[in-house]
């Protein structure tokens, strides 16, 4: 008749208990927090309720409905201060498109969820044309006027001087990018009569 040796049994149970207890934990990269990614495959920029820029599956279509012929030239947006009528553009609204090209709505900012980041928001990156080199703030021909906490999907541009940029409008979800589109070429042309530029 076999009997367990108490010392050995205790040591075995203790050893395995350490393994069991240490292994009963959640995965640190649990998908619960991040499973609601935005399934965005494109976006549209609207000005005065009309589509200024359409982007889907890495292809840009500028002024698809022919409402902004003054703002479009070849493959770029052109902001001429004489057209704008000042140094600040009208408000531009951004909306996202799913894989069918249909607009869908992302939830608005919920401050209680993450006060530092917000939930979804736009970031603006200004590159030297044809590169991925950031342009310093003071050298940019235009910069964004945007408050991601107040109005998540609306912004305007403040035009400062003539020049070209490649603008990338990234869609951020908390602390990471959910959509990183191709850069959009924008040219600012100064109206000679506008002394501010």
């Amino acid at each position: 008749m076999y009997k367990i040796n108490p010392k050995i049994a205790f040591f075995i149970i203790l050893s395995f208990s350490v393994l069991v207890l240490s292994s009963c934990e959640d995965n640190p990269a649990s998908p619960e927090f991040d499973e609601d990614h935005a399934d965005a495959f494109g976006f549209e920029l609207l000005m005065d309720g009309e589509v200024l820029v359409h982007y889907l599956f890495r292809e840009y279509t500028l002024d698809p409905d022919g409402h902004f012929t003054d703002f479009v030239e070849d493959d770029r947006l052109v902001f001429d201060t004489s057209v704008i009528g000042g140094n600040v553009t009208n408000n531009i609204t951004k909306r996202y498109l799913d894989e069918e090209g249909e607009p869908f709505t992302l939830p608005e900012y919920e401050q209680e969820r993450n006060g530092l980041f917000g939930e979804w928001y736009i970031t603006f990156r200004f590159f030297n044309p044809g590169t991925s080199t950031d342009i310093p703030i003071e050298e940019r021909p235009l910069s964004e006027i945007y408050d991601r906490f107040e109005d998540t999907w609306v912004f305007a541009f403040d035009l400062s001087h003539s020049g070209e940029v490649d603008l990338r409008l990234d869609l951020f979800h908390i602390d990471h990018e959910d959509l990183t589109p191709r850069p959009l070429r924008i040219e600012v042309r100064a109206n000679e009569s506008d002394s501010a530029l």
Binding site: N27, A29, S30, P31, D34, H37, H173, D175, E177, D178
Partner: peptide, 13 residues
């Protein structure tokens, strides 16, 4: 093996 990825990745847990 319990695998999960976070951030943008849609690789399933």
């Amino acid at each position: 093996r319990d695998y999960a990825s976070g951030a943008f990745s849609e690789t399933p847990a």
